[in-house]
Each structure stands twice: as structure tokens, then as C-alpha cells.
Amino acid sequence: MKDFNFHIPTKLYFGKDKELEVGTILSFFGAKKVLIVYGQGSIVKSGLLATVQDLLQKEGIEYIELKGVMPNPDVSKVKEGLALIKAQPVDFILAIGGGSVIDTAKLISTAYFYDGDPYDISLKKVQATDRIPVGVILTISAAGSEMSTSAVISNNETKTKTGYNSELNRPIFAIENPELSYTVSPYQSAVGVVDILAHTLERYFNPSSENELSDALAEGLMKSVIEAGKVVIENPNDYNARATLMLGSTLSHNGLMSLGKDAYMPIHQFEHVISGFYPEVAHGAGLAVMIPAWMEFYRKIEPKKFAKFARNVFNYDSGNDLDSGRYATVTLKSYFKNLGLPVSLDEYGIYKSDLEKLAARLTSDGEKPLPHHIHPVDYETALKIFELALEE
């Protein structure tokens, strides 16, 4: 176990009707004028936005709104938000939605204090130095952005999707009522399950000791999320399953699953390249394709760790590490398919002729392999893994 410092400043309000406390929560944190950021209008239809507006008014909190955040959010919406709050300054940002909305709010929050192109922060050309505080009402269990240090934004002009990490990105508070996710569609619920699993699985496959505590936490979380995912597809209004996914989303990406070890996430980098070129591919959907492909390649390189994964998550032990790793890979791929998700690139109209540009973008034209403690992802490795993702 490596040495570490760990601090999560995000206060979590979890349970039924917790969103009804948003006015008093914002008052407690000193908010006087708030930018409300949200997506395509589901919170309008559900009445959640009107409820929030009423609660803020009762507390004497002014608000302005930025609506229309899309999945795989584009930096143009960040620029729109910045223009809005520079004309009408606010002292707090409230994101109501899932990862796309929260990440948009985060970059607005930090880019407000930077005079250049806000995407410079995403590209790590400059570091964020300050922020407007962000709070969250979570409506989709998926990205874990409600308590994470990360923010992922696309630039549709350059077909780039990238994230940056900063402690400034952690929201001040997160409100989580699992009932708010009842209306999330089966498809969106499924891609959310995959995203939660990816955040946990990728941390899990970083190097660890034989009895690493964070690995045991990750195994438990993955087992619970896999079962809860099955339930919500059959019964969207199962409170306990929705609660498991919502809390699982938060815990998967707040750093707890990688305490004492590295937390590099290469599968996410593969997916960011895909949805950078093809923004119509939902993040979790791209991960459902790339996770089994990555596992199929690396199970032969790290057979013992993959056998441990098979044993402790899927209760399978053939006595042969390679066979056990293969079982885990096939089983997880089948699970994604049973959730109703495509599991190959060609199902998204991405074919073998497209793979060279994906591998080139992932590895900066072969000049910058992705790190791995045994086998870094160079151009040829990237191409091979993308090819494996063509197989259904």
C-alpha cells in the first residue's frame, strides 16, 4: 500500500425528499445568487426545476439559468455559461442532472477565473487556480462527478474529448434522492451502470498488494452494482436498487476505491477518443464496448489479477488463471449485452477502416503511449485492442 493523503470536502445529503432541503443548504453555504445548470428539459417535465426555483425564492436566493447541456458536453456550452455569469455575476453554481451537467458546471466554475480559452484548462495547458462553489442535485447514477476531482468536456470542433483533475472540482455538496432516478430510461440506466463499473474496475486493475483493502472494497461495490443493474432494468422503481446505484456512482469515483494505490484509467482514454470522434456514442455505451476488449488483451498479461477478479466478483475459479480471466471477460461482456447495450464498435458504425485514426489519436500519433505497469499502450497495442472491440 502506498502512502496517501485523503480528504473529501463534499457534504452528502442522501435519501428521500432530500432535494427539498436545497434552499436551506445553499443558504447555509452563503449563496446569494446562483447559476442553475441543467440538461435537455427532463427536470422541467418532472417539476423538479420548479420545485428548486420555489425553494430558492423562499430563502431569498436569486438565480439565473443555463439550460440545454448535451451528453458528451461541448465546450461551447461552457463558454455560454461564462458569458452569462460575467454579465450577471453569481456566487454559487447548482448543477441539476448527471455527469454532463456537473462537468459543465465545474469547468464554468474554474474557468471564470481564467481569461483565456476555458478548454486550456481541460487540455492541462494551464492549471485551475480558483473556483465558484458548485453544488449538485443528482438525477442520474453514472459518472460519479458529484464527488470527484474530475471534469470531462468535449471540443466538437477539434473532435477532442478530455478531462482534467483538480481538488477544486469537488462539489461543496451533493444531494442524492434515488427516487429522482426512477424516470431514467432503461438505456441511460444501463450506460450508467457501465460507467460506475468502469470507474471501479479500472482502479482495481492498477497494481496492488495481495490483500489490498481498496481491492476488497472495489470487489464488493462491483458485485452490488452488477446485481442492482439487473434489478433496475426489470423494475425501474426499486428504491433499494436505485439507491445502490446512486451511492455506488459516488463511491466509485471519489478516490475511495484506489486508496493506497495508483488510479490510472486507460479504458476511459480509449472511450474518450471514440466519443470525441463520434459524440453520438454515450460515454457508458463506449465503455461497454471497450472494457471487454481491454480485458481480453490484458488478461493474458496479468492472469493472476484477472483470475482474482473472476473468483471474487463472479465466484468462478477453474484452477487455471487464463481460463478464469477469460470467463470473467466473457461474463462481463454478456452482462452488458443483457442490459441492452451494443458490445462491438461496428454496432455504432465504426469499422476497421476507422481504427487507425482512433489509435493515432489515443497515442498522439504513436509518440505518447498510455502508461501501464507491465505493457504500455503503444500504437500497435491500441490498434489491437480497438480491433478486439469489433468482435461481438
Rank of each mutant, 00 (worst) to 15 (best):
F270G: 04
I140K: 01
D195K: 07
G349Y: 12
L388D: 05
G41R: 08
A128Y: 01
K230V: 02
K79P: 01
T110Q: 11
S189D: 07
L180V: 11
N155I: 02
K333C: 07
P171I: 08
K223T: 13
P71Y: 00
I291T: 05
L355I: 06
V34A: 02
N5F: 15
V193E: 09
V194Y: 11
T160Y: 07
G98E: 09
Y239A: 04
E146C: 10
G276P: 03
R311Y: 08
G255N: 09
G23E: 10
I43L: 10
P186A: 13
L48Y: 11
R242E: 07
A142D: 01
V134F: 13
S214P: 03
S145W: 01
K300C: 06
R242Q: 10
M246Y: 04
Y38E: 03
G286F: 07
S258F: 14
Q88S: 14
G15Q: 09
L332Q: 03
S208W: 03
P266H: 13
H199I: 00
E157N: 08
G340R: 11
S364P: 00
L138Q: 14
S122H: 04
G349P: 08
T10V: 12
E80T: 06
E65P: 03
E347Y: 11
A216V: 07
G98C: 09
E302G: 04
E391F: 08
I85M: 08
G98F: 08
A151F: 13
K16W: 03
E157L: 12
R203A: 15
E219I: 06
I140A: 04
G30L: 13
G229E: 11
K223V: 14
D103K: 00
K300E: 14
S109R: 11
N165Y: 12
L287S: 02
S166H: 09
S258M: 10
F28Y: 14
V34P: 03
E391Q: 15
G325F: 01
A190P: 01
S42Q: 06
L390G: 04
F270P: 01
N169P: 00
L362W: 09
G81Q: 07
I153W: 03
G98M: 09
A142L: 09
T250G: 05
P118Q: 12
M290H: 04
A243M: 07
V152S: 00
Y38S: 12
T139G: 02
M222Q: 05
G163N: 03
L355M: 09
Y264C: 00
L201M: 10
D365I: 03
N5L: 14
T129V: 14
K357Q: 13
G163E: 02
D354L: 05
M147A: 15
T10G: 08
K333N: 06
S364H: 13
K67P: 00
D321R: 02
F4G: 05
S353L: 05
